[in-house]
Computed example of a mutant assay.
Amino acid sequence: MSAFIFVSILMAALLHASWNALIKTGDNKLAGMMVMALGHGVIGLITIATQPMPEGTVWLWLLGSATFHTAYQFFLGYAYQQGDLSRVYPIARGGAPMLVLLVNGIALGEYLSLSSYVGIGLLGVGIVLMARGVFTSGESRKMLPFAIGSAFATAGYSIVDGLGAREMDNAVAYVGWLFVIAAVTYPALMISVHGTSILRINRKTWLLGMCGAAASYTSYIIAVWAMTQAPIALVTAMRETSILFAVLLGWLVFGEKMSRGKAISALLIVAGVVITRLPY
Rank of each mutant, 00 (worst) to 15 (best):
M33F: 07
G44F: 07
P54R: 10
T50N: 14
A13H: 08
E55H: 12
A17V: 06
A21T: 01
S18H: 12
N20K: 04
L14F: 15
A37I: 01
T50G: 13
G64C: 09
A37C: 00
A37N: 08
M53P: 02
T47I: 15
K29F: 06
I43M: 14
G26L: 02
E55P: 03
H16S: 09
K29A: 07
D27N: 15
V42A: 02
A37S: 05
L63C: 09
I48R: 06
K29P: 08
M53H: 09
L30S: 14
L60C: 03
A49P: 01
G32F: 11
P52C: 15
V42T: 01
W61N: 02
H40T: 01
L22E: 05
M36L: 15
V58Y: 03
G26D: 08
M34Y: 07
G64V: 05
L45Q: 01
N20S: 08
V35T: 13
G26Q: 11
W19A: 01
A66Q: 09
A17S: 14
L60F: 08
S65G: 09
L22T: 10
W59G: 12
I23K: 08
W59F: 15
A66I: 07
S18I: 05
T57G: 12
H40M: 10
L30C: 04
G26T: 13
L63F: 13
A66L: 11
S65K: 11
N28G: 10
T25G: 13
P54D: 04
A13Q: 05
T67H: 09
I43F: 15
A17N: 12
I23A: 08
A49R: 05
W61I: 03
T47G: 03
T67S: 14
A13W: 13
G26K: 07
A49C: 04
G39N: 03
A37H: 11
L30D: 11
M33E: 05
T25P: 12
I46M: 03
V42F: 06
W61Y: 14
G26W: 05
M11R: 05
I46Q: 00
S18V: 10
M36G: 10
G56F: 01
A37L: 01
L30N: 14
G56N: 09
N28L: 03
G39D: 00
V42G: 00
A37M: 11
W61G: 01
A12K: 12
G41R: 04
S18P: 15
W61E: 01
G39S: 03
N20Q: 07
P54S: 11
E55Q: 14
F68V: 07
L60H: 01
M36Q: 13
L15K: 09
D27R: 15
S18K: 07
A13I: 09
L62K: 04
A49G: 12
L15E: 00
K29M: 08
M36H: 12
W19D: 00
I43K: 06
V35Y: 12
A21G: 13
V58R: 08
S18E: 00
S65W: 08
M36I: 11
A31D: 04
P54T: 05
N28F: 06
L63I: 08
L38I: 13
Q51N: 12
G41K: 08
